[in-house]
């Protein structure tokens, strides 16, 4: 039983760490919470048996690292749009083409009031 919780805790902690460094860092919160719960259960069961394995401490360490990265990214990283040069060029080209096309249309005298 103890081994199951240790394994689940470790898998969750590794998953949380991987997610925390990806753009999906917000999602790392779920495996991080799971890792904490599994880790605590494993810790309790180990303590009852009289010996706490180092792997449980490692699970907690990984979880704390994952949570720290997630919180840091959520608080300090500002989302921004970059690499829009192509889009801006496309917009300009599209406008020029559209104006040429509109010149050929039979538009009644339409003006902005």
């Amino acid at each position: 039983m103890k081994q199951v919780f240790i394994t689940l805790g470790l898998i969750s902690a590794i998953l949380a760490t991987i997610l925390s460094v990806l753009p999906l860092s917000n999602l790392a919160i779920f495996p991080a919470i799971a890792a904490l719960i599994f880790g605590l259960i494993a810790f309790y069961l180990s303590k009852k048996a009289g010996y706490v394995k180092k792997i449980i401490q490692f699970t907690f360490l990984l979880t704390i690292v994952a949570l720290s990265i997630t919180i840091y990214k959520a608080v300090f990283t500002t989302v921004e749009v970059t690499n829009t040069e192509d889009l801006i060029i496309k917009e300009e080209e599209s406008k020029q083409e559209a104006l040429e096309e509109l010149e050929g249309l039979d538009l009644e005298d339409i003006n902005i009031e």
Binding site: T77, V79, E80, V81, L87, E91, N111, I112
Partner: peptide
């Protein structure tokens, strides 16, 4: 011949 209104909508994903 005329002055039209250009309605433009763009969508761009965040750099991350």
């Amino acid at each position: 011949k005329a002055t039209l209104l250009r309605l433009k909508c763009t969508a761009a994903t965040y750099s991350k």
